[in-house]
Simulated scan of single mutants.
Amino acid sequence: MISRKITIFIRGETEADVEDAFNEAVDRLNAGCATGTDSNSTSGFTFENTDEVPPNEVPC
């Protein structure tokens, strides 16, 4: 079984800004980035991605 813990914080002035920031964060995760951050005048994100997941945090 593979477990990953991904924490993403997103901000935006509109729902569309939040969606755009989320999609950009996911694109970077899919590209293999373990961490990332970016922002502009209307949105931003930061994320961390690790495979070091404590057993008590693994769902089911």
Score class of each variant (00 low, 15 high):
Asn56Ile: 09
Ser43Phe: 11
Phe47Thr: 09
Ile10Asn: 01
Cys33Ala: 13
Glu57Pro: 08
Val53Leu: 13
Ile8Leu: 10
Ala16Val: 11
Glu15Met: 08
Gly36Asp: 08
Thr46Trp: 10
Val58Ala: 02
Arg11Pro: 00
Thr50Pro: 06
Cys33Tyr: 15
Cys60Val: 15
Thr46Met: 14
Ser43Pro: 02
Ile10Asp: 02
Ile8Ser: 00
Asp27Thr: 07
Asn23His: 14
Glu48Tyr: 03
Glu24Ile: 07
Val53Ala: 13
Ala25Asn: 02
Phe45Asp: 06
Glu48Cys: 02
Gly36Arg: 09
Arg28Ala: 12
Asn49Trp: 02
Thr46Leu: 12
Asn49Tyr: 03
Gly44Ile: 14
Gly12Asn: 01
Leu29Ser: 00
Gly12Asp: 09
Val26Asp: 02
Asp38Val: 02
Thr46Phe: 14
Val53Thr: 13
Asn49Thr: 01
Arg4Gly: 04
Ser43Leu: 15
Glu19Asn: 10
Val26Asn: 04
Asn40Ala: 10
Thr46Asn: 09
Thr14Pro: 09
Glu19Trp: 04
Leu29Glu: 04
Thr35Asn: 07
Ala34Gln: 07
Pro55Asn: 06
Asp51Met: 14
Phe9Gly: 07
Asn56Phe: 13
Pro54Met: 06
Arg4Tyr: 12
Val58Gly: 01
Asp27Ala: 15
Ile2Thr: 12
Asp17Leu: 03
Asn56Glu: 13
Thr37Gly: 11
